[in-house]
Computed example of a mutant assay.
Amino acid sequence: MSFFKQQGAKAPQKQAVDPQHQPWVEKYRPKTIDDVSAQEHTVAVLRKTLTSSNLPHMLFYGPPGTGKTSTILALARQLFGPDNFRSRVLELNASDERGISIVREKIKNFARQTPRAQAVASDGNAYPCPPYKIIILDEADSMTQDAQAALRRIMETYARITRFCLVCNYVTRIIEPLASRCSKFRFKPLDSSSTSSRLAYIATSENVSVTDDVISTLISTSHGDLRRSITYLQSASRLSASTDPPTQITPSDIQEIAGVVPDTVINDLAATLGVEPISGDATSRRANGFDEVRKKVKGIIREGYSASQILSQLHDLVIEHPTLTARQKSRCALVFAEADKALCDGADEELQILEVGLRVHKALSP
């Protein structure tokens, strides 16, 4: 009776998503593994699985925004097609519980089900549709030790009909018995050329005018995280389009959206502390004493900039400076490290930046 009910039931209607309101991260998510940017080795290996019915358990690890989840989702769609995807793939993301109860109930129940026969693809394409299911555990490094231990036995018991793909940022948080059962794929931070070409493609598709300086700022503020840079680009696009008439996106807009301290502010502070300006952005001279350093630090903090962000950018400026000596850089690095620890422990932001300023000023004194 239930069989006939299932056959006669109407398929649930999919809600159409207005492309205007869709995040660009989802809109331009890779549809096939060939669309994945900059992960040539991983793509080359996974491409061979499309021609064979054998797929090992996999462990994808690497920094955020490098394409780990997008890659396995694209592979699953190419393996099963749109009609079998829902019945063959179980994806648990960061919003799901990761305790042992989820492993014993939801994951185990899905893993033990024998895959149904391949349905004819409604789009007319032929898909390999191998005789197994795929369980994707996103951010698996947040699973408890007990949950990971319980998962180990499930992976062995149902390996014939179920494959697992663990996705994480820190591979060292995956217990060794679990990691040893998987083929490991390391995702590297995206290089500038790959990120630049992808951002240029999205900007062209969305009719957004961006300059090379804007793309360069997007890359520098996202630190190899393509997802973050796409989000910044969409936010900047909405911001520029909200004015009448629409304005051109500038690098300062990107820095404002990203919460980054403008280069002119950091260069100005560094010049006050005695760091020779690399470019012509800095207008300050080296401070002569405590009062001048305190006045400069107080002005920056009153602008509402994050102390951690100031510390990070000041660190990069000093360490990469071409004229400072190795001894001066090492002294400054020690100052930055102590201040970062203090900020993590809840120290007052203005006092810590003031101390950093004074100690860097002293370390760079002739």
Rank of each mutant, 00 (worst) to 15 (best):
I175L: 10
R116E: 13
R186K: 10
C129P: 03
I202N: 05
Y127R: 12
I136A: 08
A149Y: 03
L151E: 00
V167F: 07
L137D: 08
E105S: 11
A149R: 12
I174F: 15
N109E: 14
A76W: 03
N84R: 13
L178R: 09
P64D: 09
T114Y: 02
K68R: 13
C182H: 10
I175G: 07
M143L: 09
I72F: 02
L90R: 02
A119M: 14
D96R: 06
S142I: 14
M143W: 08
Q148I: 00
G65R: 06
I161L: 06
K133F: 11
E156R: 01
N169R: 07
R77C: 01
V103D: 03
C165G: 04
E156G: 01
C165H: 04
S122T: 12
R112D: 00
N207P: 01
V120I: 15
D191F: 09
A140H: 06
E97N: 15
R104C: 03
K184L: 09
S196E: 14
I72N: 02
P128M: 12
Y201E: 15
D96I: 04
V167M: 10
N109A: 12
R153E: 01
M143F: 14
V103E: 06
N207H: 14
Y127S: 07
N169Y: 07
D141W: 11
Y158I: 08
E176R: 09
C182T: 10
A94Y: 09
I136V: 13
P177A: 09
R153L: 03
A149L: 09
E139Q: 05
P115H: 14
G67T: 02
P130N: 12
C165A: 14
P82R: 01
L73I: 13
N169A: 12
R98F: 04
T114P: 00
R181G: 08
V167R: 07
L75H: 08
E176W: 00
G62I: 04
I102Q: 01
L90W: 02
N84K: 12
R181F: 06
G67S: 01
N169E: 08
A94L: 11
R112E: 02
R153T: 11
N109P: 00
F80N: 02
D138Y: 15
L73T: 14
I154C: 03
Q118M: 12
F85C: 08
A126C: 11
V120M: 15
L190C: 06
T157F: 03
E156D: 04
S180N: 15
N169S: 13
S122C: 00
V171L: 01
A111Y: 07
T69E: 07
Y127F: 14
S70D: 05
N93S: 15
E91K: 05
F80E: 04
Y61S: 10
T144S: 13
L166H: 04
K106R: 15
K68A: 10
E176S: 09
P82D: 05
R86S: 11
S196W: 09
I154S: 02
